[in-house]
Design a protein around this nucleic acid. Structure first.
Lengths: 249, 249
DNA sequence: GAGTGGTCTAGACCACGAG
DNA sequence: TCGTGGTCTAGACCACTCA
């Protein structure tokens, strides 16, 4: 019926999770249990678990076991920032930690920001959790001197949007924002920080903000679990825009 | 030095590919060869190959061997369509095939298009190749009757953009376009059609076009290999826009 | 038919986490 | 200390491709 043995096992376990036979934070049967239950070898059982891990249904913790993943609000990134709906939904349970330090730009950052090598930058690292579940990872870079770094540590936007807000408050004018989006697998470090497997697809968003002279005043690198994030952009045909508004009121 | 054995093997092979010790379309050593060369077991060697496959560096063909993947132009999706630069770059070598048929909308499509169940739709399937390498996969849906289906078969935009162009030519007015972007792993079918592994991240883009009354007149489902695609969106602060243009001239 | 990759089995040792 | 998942080995059978 099904091509692969491990797909068959994954399908059966998925049904149990979706039908709440196994509930959030429940412990899954151990790999040894599953080997016995399905008369399968360990690599086969582990392949099945990888499938579910990559769908965001389970979390595997070395040494303690495998657990049903707590569902969290899907992150929606809209028009270059966290959508207000997502922000409102996660506000009560979200925990955000921010650290910052001054670094020297490497080649990758220089190309991204359009700056000379060895330029000093302030790097902010945002990590957020929805309850106990890691949620998002953001690195924000601002040329040193544009912003007094201490002010932002009380900030709470999980995607680093408040750095932009502070820039504006500091008198920096933003003219354009560009978001570049790709899909890839996480690095080992990212997988660890986000609590996902190394085979789980992530949404990679690089956002740069330009001032009126075309200079990059802020760059943000976002990494979000693919099963829990989406980016949405809406473009209006300007000539038709008022017409649309008129008819939808 | 390196955490995993298979990561070590993958790193060494990657260097050989990047330094052109192994060139495009060259055959990689067989798994048996690699087992001997690295004194590793087959699962370990295969894990290393999966890493490279998921990075888009190699293609594995059951029965014939593993080959260095021919590099292709990176697909850039900008402001709800294929970027003109990408289109120009791929035009000389691109092959696009289109098929169409009339279908009955399932639940997923009904929700996407905001239409009643059992509505008739015209489905266009676009497949493109860059030379012999599969490049993109697009499904375009238009409510039956909006467009005479035969006209579009000569069309050649790999992402189905020409269906929209034909809608406009037919007198349908487009007011707004929304693109929804996620990262995920491909289905087995998608992996086969795109010539990628089942563990390769793909960029999933769902685009809907609305007419001035808010009705969905077209929906496109795009699936692109993550290692070869990116989506870019630029937003301008309208008040600053003329200022930006003035300073960049 | 020979060689390739796709899948599965059986068993081992290790690293980690919790009692 | 014990059970867990992480990694690796050795070997088998199968399906596919191509000469």
């Amino acid at each position: 019926m099904v091509a692969n043995r491990y797909t068959h096992i994954a399908n059966q376990l998925r049904v149990q999770i979706e039908q709440r036979v196994l509930s959030a934070d429940d412990r899954m049967p151990s790999e040894a249990d599953l080997m016995a239950a399905y008369s399968a070898s360990r690599p086969t059982v582990r392949l099945a678990m990888e499938v579910l891990e990559n769908e965001g249904l389970i979390v595997r913790r070395h040494g303690s076991g495998t657990f049903v993943r707590q569902p969290t609000t899907r992150i929606r990134y809209t028009n270059d920032k966290l959508s207000p709906e997502t922000r409102a939904a996660i506000a009560p349970v979200m925990e955000v930690s921010v650290t910052h330090k001054t670094i020297t730009a490497d080649n990758k950052l220089c190309a991204l920001l359009g700056i000379p090598t060895d330029t000093r930058l302030t790097e902010y690292v945002y990590r957020s959790r929805h309850g106990t579940v890691p949620y998002s990872l953001a690195h924000v870079y601002v040329p040193a001197g544009l912003l007094a770094p201490d002010e932002s540590l009380k900030a709470l936007s999980p995607l680093g949007d408040d750095v932009r807000a502070q820039l504006i408050a500091s008198g920096v004018r933003l003219a354009a924002t560009q978001s570049n989006i790709t899909a890839r697998l996480p690095t080992a470090e990212e997988a660890r920080l986000l609590g996902i497997g190394i085979g789980t697809a992530v949404l990679d968003i690089v956002r740069t903000s330009l001032d009126p002279t075309g200079r990059v005043v802020e760059a943000t690198l976002l990494v979000l679990p693919g099963f829990n994030a989406e980016a949405t952009f809406t473009t209006h045909s300007l000539l038709r825009e008022q017409e649309l508004e008129a008819t939808t009121r």
